[in-house]
Design a protein around this nucleic acid. Structure first.
Lengths: 268, 268
DNA sequence: CAGTGGTCTAGACCACACT
DNA sequence: GTGTGGTCTAGACCACTGC
């Protein structure tokens, strides 16, 4: 099996045309290893919802049989998906679709931490939804989300508090179509991460995100919500979150108080 | 070879004692796979300077022969080290020790980016060393570096400018012993990343780092160096950088202007 | 061409979880 | 015990680099 260069047991679309011109019209023939093709197929199954967050996917041997490759090959594909946090392996139990719910430690994307000392006594954040409105997307929201200016979007504004201290004020912008039906009530009643609700209610799983940080001065409104003085330095965090296939699905603009907390980052 | 549970072809220190009590005194027997042991050995060779940054390490087959394991096993060990950015694989050429010099895109740890638009015209940073002094470590510097208060450390203060605009003011604290002989002149003459100089001159390779970010107001001194007004919100970035074996080797406290730049982060 | 890393296989066995 | 992921091997062949 491993020999015939690009026989591809699955007639995948990644194959080069069987009679590509020898002159090579443009790009390289784009050799793609078998395990990459498997990875793509698994990704498609995930995206299509064949297996939902929290589900266990078929065993390595099953998948190997389905795709007509060796166990080692599907293993390598799964390894990469697990490295990207799309799948979670659990020895003896199986391989699971990653989820923002019950993800042993919640708030996977929230990098704000209490300063030393308060580590243990912190407890979970108290959430307060200020509003949830359907609006037309301003240009600076539409562009990053890949929408056109004026298309309908949802705007959720909320405040997170720790130990009673309002610490985060954020606006969450969501494209209107995939999140049709999201209400303030649903958000207010929900416990657990917002991204878990997105999975359960709308089948949208956030996979990765990019953040841009700045230091800004609190304006009157922000100062009010965060119970601090206007002009106080705040950490501005703009997050663009993506689903499968690198599709942007959420724009979040937050202001963080950093007098008792800090934003923690690891560099490798 | 793969069978005898823990025969360990290399008599590594990770082996469980051959006659551990069946009652299991305390922790688990700590089963450690072969490839992990190989990884540890490679790490030791790196740390000992057997192969220096930029060097090519022995081929997979050579290492497999040396350690008496299969190629696949050393491959997995190297894979993990490459994932941690300690090694770099180059097909057809070999496996190399990662380096901060010539690392195709420099400043691996600097996350500050020009805002959209200025991307191309930015060019390299202009550096100005303000001072380089030998001092006694204050408590808040000694602790994170794993030193005792009052031990000798080096303090380097510098300003980085982009397109003529002073943007970063930072204090770099280094333990005195490993960096004995570092002078302002050496720093001033050097081009290229500071971490490349550390590798070349002192054999210290920075492997990973942790950063804590905050928004703060510029005091008079910072405002002066950064040519801005006192009270301007600045991004405070405290970085602890580690060498091999998770040894902290540098503490850096920086203030970033974020009016034309932002701190970019990827969440996975 | 030889040498390096990269892919793929087939099969054996180990560690872990559930029943 | 059965089934799952995890480790290890041995060998074949492919892709890339440089002599």
């Amino acid at each position: 099996m491993a020999s015939s260069t690009q026989s591809s047991p699955l007639a995948g679309p990644t194959d080069a045309p069987p009679d590509a011109p020898l002159g090579m019209a443009e790009a390289a023939p784009a050799f793609s290893p078998l395990y990459q093709q498997i990875k793509t197929l698994l990704l498609q199954s995930l995206q299509a919802g064949e297996w939902k967050p929290g589900d266990t996917i078929p065993s390595e041997l099953e998948l190997a049989a389905r795709y007509r490759v060796s166990q080692g090959t599907v293993r390598k594909a799964i390894d990469e998906l697990a490295a990207d946090n799309l799948l979670v392996r659990r020895q003896g139990k199986g391989t699971f679709v990653a989820t923002h719910a019950e993800q042993h430690i919640q708030y996977r994307f929230l990098r704000l931490q209490p300063d030393a000392g308060d580590r243990d006594t912190e407890g979970p954040a108290e959430r307060r939804i200020l509003e949830c409105r359907r609006v037309r997307a301003p240009a600076d929201v539409a562009r990053p989300l890949g929408l056109r200016t004026g298309e309908p979007v949802l705007l959720v504004r909320r405040v997170l508090s720790f130990r009673g201290v309002p610490t985060i004020l954020e606006d969450v912008w969501l494209p209107g179509t995939p999140f049709k039906g999201l209400t303030l009530e649903a958000l207010a009643e929900d416990k657990g991460p917002m991204y878990a609700l997105f999975e359960a209610q709308f089948g949208v799983r956030m996979v990765r995100a990019e953040e841009k940080l700045r230091a800004v001065a609190a304006d009157e409104e922000a100062a009010g919500w965060l119970q601090t003085a206007a002009g106080t330095p705040l950490l501005s965090v703009e997050r663009l979150a993506y689903t499968y296939k690198d599709t942007p699905m959420e724009l979040r603009r937050g202001l963080y108080r950093t007098d008792r907390h800090h934003y923690r980052n690891e560099l490798n």
